[in-house]
């Protein structure tokens, strides 16, 4: 696998997308926080203190931060399974405590302990995470259509990986979004691997974003290891969608430093990924790259970065303390059965 994929087309529209110093500081801080959450999940899972799966995000958390940091609260965000959407969600301002509680089956979980690792924060417009890869393409059409009908300038950040573009639903969503000029950003975080399957083997073209050409949809390709480049591309696409110009496709070329999910062998096809390849990729780990930039640009000193890292650790630790202190749900069958259907007004009467 190419550890340093060529970036053919960078986000260009500087005027609306240029990041201020404060923007870049926020992105860097969010990146550190997401990195801490991701690492702690890995540790928890390895020590048996996490329910279900965990799909580690190491190496691939920058696109989520870039995608979501500058969304408005009433924009719809649809993350995917890498790092379980935590990078995306925290960047949108979600307090992840209830998600950690959910991931450990607690009553204080964001889904009342019913959903294991499936994230849902409808109050932040993050909905119905499902285990089906590419599940979010179809409802994204509806989020986009609702946004268009209501005319409030909302956009839909529809995030997924390279693997999900094997789904026919991806085609249907792009087709309909472009036909109806829906405000949807097709945000593809291409890490080159779908479990063990290389994107280069499963897709005929080197760029997933070349799919956008068939719909006449504008596209950008960005270095997914560069959180600032991701954020600039997101801003351009968000502006484009918000202005009523329709969807845009952004492909973030990223990578994966761990196995698909914890405990699964890390293969390409049927042979183990080489340690050399992974080490080479690790040179482009996004926190490392971002740190070089913020130091070089004088945004933070090393001491300040240490403080940010300490604060991020404290945040994650406090979040886990809260989650661990939550009780397990007491619901039995009778109580759970009352939640199968949404109540109607006449039910109360």
């Amino acid at each position: 696998m190419d550890a340093n994929p060529p970036v053919r087309e960078l986000a260009m529209s500087i005027s609306n997308t240029a990041l201020t110093i404060e923007d870049r500081k926020l992105l860097f801080t969010n990146l550190l926080r997401a990195d801490e959450y991701d690492r702690t999940m890995y540790k928890r899972m390895m020590s048996g203190k996490l329910l279900g799966f965990y799909h580690p995000g190491e190496g691939a958390i920058a696109p989520g931060i870039g995608a979501a940091t500058f969304l408005n609260q009433d924009d719809v965000l649809s993350p995917h399974h890498r790092a379980h959407g935590m990078a995306h969600a925290l960047a949108k301002g979600v307090d992840l405590k209830p998600y950690l509680a959910e991931h450990t089956g607690k009553a204080g979980g964001c889904s009342e302990g019913r959903s294991s690792f499936h994230m849902s924060f409808p109050e932040h417009k993050i909905y119905m995470f499902s285990g089906f890869i590419g599940f979010n393409f179809a409802p994204a059409v509806g989020y986009g259509y609702a946004a268009k009908l209501s005319g409030k300038g909302q956009v839909v950040m529809m995030c997924s990986g390279d693997g999900s573009y094997g789904q026919g639903r991806a085609h249907e969503a792009m087709l309909m979004a472009q036909n109806m000029k829906l405000p949807i950003i097709f945000w593809c975080e291409n890490n080159g691997l779908a479990i063990h399957a290389e994107a280069s083997e499963m897709h005929p073209m080197p760029d997933i974003s070349s799919l956008a050409d068939g719909y006449g949809m504008p596209k950008r390709i960005v270095d997914g290891q560069d959180v600032f480049a991701c954020a600039e591309a997101a801003r351009e696409a968000i502006d484009h969608a918000r202005e009523g110009k329709g969807p845009m496709f952004v492909e973030c070329k990223t990578l994966r430093l761990k196995e698909h999910d914890i405990g699964t062998p890390d293969l390409i096809g049927s042979t183990p990924r080489s340690k050399e390849d992974i080490l080479k990729q690790a040179e482009r780990e996004p926190v490392k790259l971002a740190m070089q930039k913020v130091l070089a640009d004088g945004l933070f000193t090393m001491d300040e970065i240490d403080d940010l890292r300490t604060a991020a650790r404290a945040e994650v630790e406090a979040a886990w303390d809260w989650a661990d202190a939550q009780p397990f749900p007491e619901d039995g069958e009778a109580e759970l059965m009352t939640h199968v259907f949404a109540p109607n007004a006449e039910d109360a009467a």
Binding site: V76, P122, Y127, M128, F137, A138, P139, A140, V141, G142, Y143, G144, Y145, A146, A147, L149, S150, G168, R169, H171, E172, A173, L175, M176, N179
Partner: peptide, 24 residues
């Protein structure tokens, strides 16, 4: 609304809009 022959997209248009307060 008429859609292309895209049952998933067509249905998704309804399910997504329903989560946004519409009654498709």
């Amino acid at each position: 609304v008429d859609t292309p022959i895209s049952e998933s997209g067509m249905y998704g248009m309804a399910s997504g809009a329903a989560l946004q307060g519409y009654r498709p």
